[in-house]
Design a protein around this nucleic acid. Structure first.
Lengths: 190, 190
DNA sequence: GCAGGTTCTCTAGCGTTGCTAGGATCGCCA
DNA sequence: TGGCGATCCTAGCAACGCTAGAGAACCTGC
């Protein structure tokens, strides 16, 4: 029994190793660097080992994204807790969200842009993902008017996301970012 | 002189053929179908011909995107002109924008999501792209408050874009779309 | 302690991708 | 009509995701 337990433990350990290696590679050298060969090299195993853990490369990236959600959720929570008054709290959460996207651009892409096989807004949504969403929602709750909190959250989130991706891809001028964020808050936090 | 003119004309014709073939392929069969081999097959030339017209595949996709901008611009203009009162006009433009994205999802992706080598908001921005942006801006102008029209337009556009891409990638519930659009208009068209 | 069998991992290779070098072929011009 | 450019295609490169099948390592039972 103990032997199987150890093997299982080692396998789980190696799986974590794969995910962190993929994330490292993604964040330090970009999407093109994340190949199954380079990944296998990093973990010092051969390629097929990857496929004994994950169905394919996209499954690995999904795991990377999930890990990112956990980080994002804690950062958002910290920001919301630290701030006081509702409007300031929402501003803090939005700034934390934007800051995360800026500090981890490729990871953010894996989480929110890349087609990834993760259940969003479903019963089986990963806790980390759900929690990140809830931080946003709690930040917005004070500003609900006649409309649904969920709809409000989804719309605000979309706006924030749009600002970030369009800027990152060079479709929005790189400066004026703060002004756009301020305007967004102005329209939603009243 | 006439011979060279004919050759130049034929080359231009073939270039258009490449772009429309790429767009057809993209819209009818998706991203995976757009390979240089299949493209060469469609235009009934060999692969290297593509590279005598474009620097690479991404340059072809940039041309496809540019063609898309022209279509989008005319649709937006038609929508704005047809509507009367400002709020209704903005709603019409937004709906036209969303409709375009829904009817041409992969083309929209090429235009606004895919990393593409096009100058946005620069002096050398393609006219079609500039025009599409201006339609949005004119729709928003009546709702400028203390802030810049450009900032307002950029922010509203981002929100719209965010709603569309997050929905398409399954990150937002597919229904409730209209409600989110309505909420967005509510926050901006006052 | 040692054979048997299971579990694991690596080598090698498949089919496909974007892209390019080099030779062959075509068509224009004198 | 012969020579010369321009044009185009065949063939191939390196890299990709992924997999079959051989081999090594390990635990188990005698």
């Amino acid at each position: 029994m103990s032997i199987q337990a150890r093997r299982k433990r080692e396998r789980a350990e190696r799986e974590r190793l794969i995910v962190t290696a993929a994330r490292d590679l993604l964040e330090s050298e970009g999407w093109d660097a994340v190949t199954t060969r380079r990944l296998a090299d990093r973990i010092e195993y051969s390629q097929p080992v990857l496929y004994s853990h994950f169905k394919g490369k996209s499954a690995i990236m999904a795991a990377v994204a999930t890990a990112g959600f956990a980080d994002l959720a804690t950062e958002l929570r910290a920001a919301r807790i630290a701030a006081g008054e509702p409007r300031q709290a929402l501003a803090a959460v939005a700034a934390a969200y934007a800051g995360f996207a800026e500090r981890h651009p490729t990871l953010y892409e894996a989480m929110f842009t890349q087609p990834v096989d993760l259940p969003f807004g479903r019963p089986d949504t990963p806790p980390a993902l759900r929690q990140a969403y809830e931080e946003l929602r709690e930040g917005l709750r004070p500003f609900t008017r006649e409309d649904n909190v969920e709809t409000l959250t989804e719309t605000f989130w979309s706006a924030l996301h749009g600002l970030l991706v369009l800027r990152r891809s060079g479709r929005l001028p790189h400066d004026d970012h703060e002004r756009r964020l301020a305007l967004l808050l102005d329209r939603f936090a009243t």
